[in-house]
Amino acid sequence: MEKTDYTTIQNVILDAGPIIHLEEIDSLYLLTDFERLIIPDAVWREVEYHSPSVFKYRDINFEKANVVFDEDILSVCKLFCLDTGELEAITLCSQYPDSILLTDDASARLVAKTLGIRAHGTIGILLRAIRRKQFTPHETMRKLKEIPLKSTLFIRRSLLHEIIEEVKREYGLI
């Protein structure tokens, strides 16, 4: 399908959450819209353990990356109780300028914000899919509704309802 204007994001650094959650609702291929999908070693192992099928998709090119630790980032991450995967993902972001971090963990996003790193999550990817012409608004709404049924992503039901209403408003479906 033809893509609209907009710049393509070059480097995406992935935490385990969005990979696992997108796979649970059969939407992992939405990630192919990004140039490079970089997964730190610890996250790779975590995904391999929880969702081994993720790495069987031949048309999604994940790159495994080793992380060179930075003492300052390490200290901030520990202060915010981040796990090894999140810590490696945030450290990698500092090694790839202009990258964005994909995570569904609130504290990882808080650290990212503190360090000036752009971060988004599964919900952002599902909504972005509409303007990138990967999904119709109806397809995205269907996937949003599947989250509590098929996915381990925790989201308050009323908030999910608000998101769906926002999609309807944005695309004149009310």
Partner: peptide
């Protein structure tokens, strides 16, 4: 953060 995602996503 989810509200930020809505803004970015849409």
């Amino acid at each position: 953060f989810i509200k930020e995602d809505i803004e970015w996503g849409l």
